[in-house]
Computed example of a mutant assay.
Amino acid sequence: MRAYEIGPQDGLDSLRLVERDTPTPCPGEVAVKVHAVCLNHRDLLTLKGQYGALKSEDRIPVSDGVGSVTALGDNVSGVEIGQRVIAPNFVTWLDGKFTPAIFGQDLGISRDGWLAETIIMPADAIIAVPDGVSDDAAASIAAAGSTIWNCICAFGGLEKGDLVLTLGTGGVSILTLQIAKALGAQVAITSSSNDKLERCKAMGADFCVNYRENEDWPTALMAETGGRGADIIVETAGLNSIEQSIAACAPNGRIALIGALSGQLDKVPQLAGLIGKNVTMKGITAGNREMLGELVDLISRTGLEPLIDRKFTFDDAPAAFTYLESGDHMGKVMITL
């Protein structure tokens, strides 16, 4: 079979296409023929050697994908050949609270990921994809979607009518917009592009702020919301923007810190606003299988279709990584097989 490896992790050119024997499942595992995968920011960091310690050069990357079961290992039940499936990127985190042990089985990081023609999965990690859920939707939700569900539901305690703020228009932020709207929330979103903000409005965003035109964008957002502020913030930029997120927060708001797209911390943030507004801030690593299953149910019920910005063929996978790095995308970047 064909597969991609992360190589020496010295840049995007590190990605290499190789031929491997098609893997066979051991007891408790299934083999999955891959249909499509979606990229996340951490896939870029991994190729650059910036996502923790360097990995084995033969690691297969990418944590999000969908495929169909082609073979069953011994002692596997409740799974059918041909069944479409996805899995959380932390394949041993089935339910319950976070534990650092989950990092030992992280797709595309500490365990081979989806960017191959066939992959092996633990049978108890997979989730069957309902007939009404497209491959596009299924391939784009495992890592980002379960994380969002943890942020706004498990941690955020979302209630209908709450205001959710998400930063930027990348894959996580656009999916946050779509999921939050499907759950009955209001949504505010930021971008440096008015064209992208207009598209967000068309997708249901209630409040849109251009942070390039409004350097003090929290004040602009407060003006738009009548001084209300956000009940839940999905903070993708990192601690460099945390002061602004606190300023945009409503009293008793919840900030889910999930990323660091703004880069390394360049100053010590002032966090007094957490106390003044009684704000709760929590780091969110990802979501578990149970959370991902709840999201699949929501998509099945509502017909939600995550926004796919562009699709690349398997042969053009390096171009997909380059496009993601450019930041020109809005929504998810997909590779199809």
Score class of each variant (00 low, 15 high):
175 L>T: 06
92 T>Y: 01
164 V>K: 06
107 L>Y: 10
159 E>Q: 15
128 A>N: 12
173 S>R: 10
92 T>R: 14
125 A>D: 03
106 D>S: 15
81 I>A: 03
114 W>H: 13
124 D>K: 15
126 I>W: 03
99 T>D: 11
94 L>V: 11
85 V>T: 07
98 F>L: 09
112 D>I: 01
142 A>E: 08
98 F>I: 02
139 A>K: 09
117 E>Y: 04
81 I>Q: 06
113 G>C: 06
140 S>R: 11
104 G>P: 00
91 V>M: 13
175 L>G: 08
141 I>D: 04
128 A>P: 01
142 A>M: 13
176 T>Q: 08
189 I>F: 02
103 F>G: 05
164 V>T: 06
68 S>H: 14
71 A>F: 04
83 Q>D: 05
135 D>I: 13
108 G>V: 09
190 T>A: 00
87 A>D: 06
78 G>I: 02
87 A>H: 10
128 A>I: 08
124 D>Q: 15
138 A>V: 00
134 S>G: 00
118 T>Y: 14
107 L>E: 10
188 A>W: 07
91 V>K: 13
122 P>W: 13
173 S>N: 08
142 A>Y: 03
172 V>M: 13
115 L>Y: 13
92 T>Q: 11
139 A>E: 05
125 A>E: 05
129 V>G: 00
85 V>M: 10
163 L>P: 01
168 G>F: 03
163 L>T: 09
134 S>R: 09
183 L>I: 09
134 S>I: 00
122 P>L: 12
159 E>W: 02
180 A>D: 04
71 A>N: 11
169 T>N: 05
166 T>E: 06
109 I>N: 15
162 D>S: 14
160 K>Q: 15
96 G>W: 02
143 A>H: 07
75 N>Y: 09
91 V>D: 12
187 V>N: 07
156 G>C: 04
68 S>R: 14
115 L>M: 14
161 G>E: 11
184 G>K: 14
91 V>T: 15
142 A>C: 14
137 A>N: 02
186 Q>M: 12
179 I>V: 15
134 S>K: 09
164 V>P: 05
113 G>K: 13
74 D>C: 05
88 P>H: 11
88 P>I: 11
88 P>N: 11
112 D>Q: 13
92 T>N: 12
169 T>W: 00
164 V>I: 06
122 P>T: 12
89 N>T: 15
108 G>A: 13
153 C>W: 11
184 G>N: 12
75 N>K: 15
86 I>G: 08
131 D>F: 03
